[in-house]
Every structure is written in structure tokens, then in C-alpha cells.
Design a protein around this nucleic acid. Structure first.
Lengths: 125, 125
DNA sequence: ATAAACTCCGTACATGGGTACGGGGTCAAT
DNA sequence: ATTGACCCCGTACCCATGTACGGAGTTTAT
């Protein structure tokens, strides 16, 4: 059983963040003995790790709450995953288009003699 | 000369957004005659269009303010562009990695018989 | 001349994901 | 027994980029 500070350190989160997740109902408040100090067992630590991993995959906290409540319903989870996949793929193609435009712009700077007239600025005007 | 509402319509921005950009010093407050109403000539309209285009390329408002003040210094603009390019490219590779992971996860759902045990949830645990 | 539509200003609210603060109580080490 | 480290709670604040509101003045159309 760990106090909130120990748990935070173990998971590389801040104490405030754990309290924040509790406020947002991502995790439950654990048992609190006389002292009033939260005491965590492994089950909440595991949930927090789940949250961190899902966050790293780009799920929002709301979606993570969803995911956790969908435990035991694989097709729901799958459809949330597929939805996320679509968003990710469309972001990728947006960014690739952008990459192309900005590349072209910076290239045109390279072949530009007149320092006081920038082709990037010009093309935005 | 256009009032703020006409200008907003012409640029497909909201009146509030134009006032916001003014507060943020992206554009100057135009002349205001007796009535107190802002009256815009083309120069500010052009600046707003510049802002919109730069925003579409993924520049933040702060960067756009920078860009506008860099007019006439091509190498500075170029380096801001290259910096943005790097950020975009690293976002793309992050997202591609994510895409891969989520694809694998959702695929494993497809070949999963047990609806009540989701491999996505399992892999996050 | 009256009503509708527009503008003014300042301020508060929204989103997402936290971070920081302040005044207290508690626990662990010396 | 004292000191320092830890924890409690509620609240306010941060970032970026706007959006919304409300009461008052102005312009425009009928």
C-alpha cells in the first residue's frame, strides 16, 4: 500500500495529476484510514498505468474513461480503436500535405537572391 | 472601406475573431470615425488573409506575429519555416507509429472469438 | 419615425489537461 | 519533542484560440 506521493513517483506522475484523475472520475478514491491519507493498492496503480498507456496512444481522457468502462465488450473497444485510427490517418495526410507546401516554400528561399523579399511571405500574401 | 461585420463575412471569420486578433496585436485597430465604428481598408483585410493562410499551414498566432514582423528578412522566415517543417515531420512519424500500433490492436480484435475479453484492453493493462 | 441590424466595450466562459497555492493536519526520523 | 517531509482540501490559474453575453449607442431600411 502506497501513499499518493510514493505512487506518483513510481508511475512518474505528479501527485496533482493523480488527484486530478480522481476528480475526473478516471479512478476511484481509495480507502482512507484515520489519518485521511489515500492508500493505494496495486489495482489502482494498474489502472493508472492503463491510463498512461492509452494516453500515449493518443486517446483523450474522456475516451480512456470510455475504454475502461467497456472492459468486456471487445467490439465496442474495437470500434473506438478504428475511429481513432481514422482520425490518426487523416491527421497524417493533412500533415503530409503541409510538409510538402512548407518544403517548397523553404526551398524557394534557398534559391532566392533578394534577402529583403521573402518568397514565403509573398506566397502568403 | 468595410465595417467589421462586412469584413468578417468577406473573409469568413467572425467579428469576435477580428476583435480578438486586434487585442492580440496581430492587426492594428483601424481608423474610427465619429460613430466609433471600425472602418477597414484593404491593407488590414490583406493582413487578415495572411494570418488565415499562415494558420492553415500550422503556424501559431505568435509565430504569425513573428512572421509579419520579419517581412524583409528572408533568412529568418526560412529558418522559422524549417523549424516548423521539423515539427511537422516528427509529428508525422509519431502518428505513423501510433497508426501501426492501433492497427495491430484492432486487427487482433477481428481474430478474437471471446467478446468478453478484448485484446486491446489486455494489451494496455 | 420606428424597428431591425449592426457595432461598441469589457468581461466571462469554453476546451483539455493539468499545475500552483495556501493554510492547515500528520507522520517519520533524530 | 521538534523539525521536515508528506498529505489534506478547495480554489485559482496556465496554455491557445477563440466564443458568448449584455447593455448601450449607431446606422439603415421601410
Amino acid at each position: 500500500m502506497k501513499t499518493i506521493g510514493k505512487l506518483a513517483k513510481a508511475l512518474d506522475l505528479s501527485v496533482e495529476t493523480i488527484r486530478f484523475y480522481e476528480r475526473e472520475n478516471l479512478i476511484k478514491q481509495p480507502q482512507k484510514p484515520l489519518s485521511g491519507y489515500r492508500l493505494y493498492d496495486d489495482s489502482i496503480a494498474n489502472q493508472l498505468q492503463f491510463i498512461c498507456r492509452a494516453k500515449a496512444l493518443g486517446f483523450t481522457l474522456k475516451e480512456i474513461a470510455s475504454l475502461m468502462s467497456m472492459d468486456g465488450n471487445c467490439s465496442k473497444v474495437e470500434s473506438l480503436g478504428l475511429q481513432k485510427l481514422k482520425i490518426i490517418q487523416s491527421k497524417i495526410s493533412d500533415l503530409k500535405r503541409l510538409e510538402k507546401v512548407i518544403k517548397e516554400m523553404t526551398n524557394s528561399c534557398k534559391t532566392n537572391d533578394d534577402q529583403s523579399h521573402c518568397p514565403i511571405i509573398a506566397s502568403l500574401k
